[in-house]
Design a protein around this nucleic acid. Structure first.
Lengths: 279, 279
DNA sequence: CGCTTAATTGACACCAGTCAATACCCGTGG
DNA sequence: CCACGGGTATTGACTGGTGTCAATTAAGCG
């Protein structure tokens, strides 16, 4: 097991959940329960689920609320006149979307996978962010991470070929998609993103993705279990081909931390819908 | 003369210069003179010039100061192992670079053209930005503009072909490079950026750039005066081909405003070096 | 068991990158 | 005044990768 197979340790960074709790009204919230420094609310009051391809944010409408991603993956995208779609960024659990005017123009945010979101009043969040230092720090950290990802994508689209981009993507995926490490240092990656989304993110086509995947399989770098499950036999090789040696940790520790936080907060087998509350 | 040939009017947004002035120490600065709401300092004390390809910011060193671009164009870039370079963003007069950790990793900032910068102490600027609301608003506006540009580039690299990208770039260039409108609605664009930089920004090669330019010339969309001067015969056509109809104004008004501000502050024929002072 | 959707595979064309040669501009210096 | 040199732009020939189109297979699901 090398550096890539282990999930980054949870450090601090609970600020967003903590801040949300801090701002809680004096009167006890129905079904709410403190959990660590964060507040979890059993009521579905502020929670909204999205099926794949459901709209989350339209381009022009600033919207009255921002969204906290409880689970799932959102995509920021833009369409060309011919219908061509380019995904500009993905958003992951623990992240806040819709706060700043990041979505001006003909871009939109949709759910890429089944997602569970928490609605937060925009003004409320605005106040929180200005008043609470820890929250602001966390939020800026998020913004920084997102900017890093955008920089990577831009660089990748301009400087790398489709195969290299996919290698990088697979390597990065181990940190934001289910990845089951095996004793021998390899691991099985569950790709939760539809092929089309991967293609549109990496600026290529599903056909190319398919060909590249099978090429990597034949090269012994990955092993195809089924179209959505790959056993990564040579993770360092993927990292090298994707040219993300230096970026790998930087781009994924934030994600891993937030994911870990949420996983530790959300009971995995709870039938009762659980929700972080933002009022 | 249509919407594209006129420079956007100067509105507000003097906050950065104004804030810098506000923070001026009580003792009069040598050669400093108030100009409008901004402070201009005739001494070259805080000014530094950069020749093309000179380094401004290295990747890892956070640096002690941030830079205010007085004139010229900077580029944010990243190299692949094979030497391939991708330009991730350009920075223009009136913008601040080097404040946030935007330049982590193997990226660097260099001067793309002859540039004149003003050094500002990082901590000083930090204080300014937190204390001065107008400055902060201005600064956020900049960040937003830069994010918009990055989004455009990413989308462009993924969804458009080289020709379309170049068309968009030419159209956008009218707002951040010398553009002399003519009575008939056309105008002459002076391309200050080296061909290689354009190619590396648009993710293509100088050969392709050359071919496309001559193709556009034959199509009657532009007229090549010399390799660095094009008469744009059909600006709306460029906008359409580049698919930036909706983005055009959004992406360039900020640039135009800042450019206009600076031009009105800097005496164009002054032999004495003029500099915005940031301490 | 048929339907829909996703994934794969094949054939093909063409764009665009690469390499190489030439033309051009603009200094300098003889 | 011209020759020379360095850098940039241009042009040509070539080719390989990748998108496109189309057909086939596989998989999920009622």
């Amino acid at each position: 097991m090398n550096q890539f197979t282990s999930v980054a340790p949870v450090t601090n960074g609970h600020a967003i959940m903590a801040a949300v709790e801090t701002a809680r009204k004096p009167e006890p919230l129905r079904c709410s329960l403190p959990f660590g420094r964060a507040m979890i609310c059993g009521a579905a009051r502020y929670r909204e689920d999205r099926a794949p391809d459901d709209k989350v944010l339209a381009g022009d409408a600033p919207g009255q609320h921002v969204w906290f991603i409880r689970s799932g993956i959102l995509r920021l995208q833009r369409h060309a006149y011919d219908g061509h779609r380019q995904i500009l960024s993905l958003f992951f659990p623990g992240e806040i979307v819709g706060f700043d005017g990041e979505f001006r123009g003909e871009v939109s945010v949709e759910a890429a996978t089944q997602s569970s979101l928490c609605r937060i009043d925009r003004r409320k969040f605005e106040t929180l962010v200005t008043e609470n230092d820890a929250l602001r720090a966390d939020f800026f950290r998020q913004k920084q991470d997102q900017l890093d990802r955008l920089h990577w994508l831009t660089w990748s689209l301009g400087a790398l070929g489709p195969e290299e981009r996919l290698c990088a993507f697979l390597a990065l995926s181990t940190r934001f998609m289910p990845f089951q490490p095996l004793p021998d240092g390899t691991g099985v990656l569950s790709v939760e993103l539809p092929r089309k989304d991967i293609a549109d993110l990496l600026g290529t086509t599903v056909e190319s993705i398919s060909r590249i995947v099978h090429r990597l399989d034949e090269a012994g770098i990955i092993e195809i279990r089924d179209p959505a499950h790959f056993r990564l036999l040579d993770l360092p090789g993927l990292v090298a081909r994707g040219q993300i040696d230096g970026l790998f940790d930087r781009m994924t520790t934030g994600l891993a931390i937030r994911r870990h936080q949420i996983e530790s907060l959300v009971a995995p087998d709870s039938a009762d819908p659980i929700c972080f509350c933002g009022r």
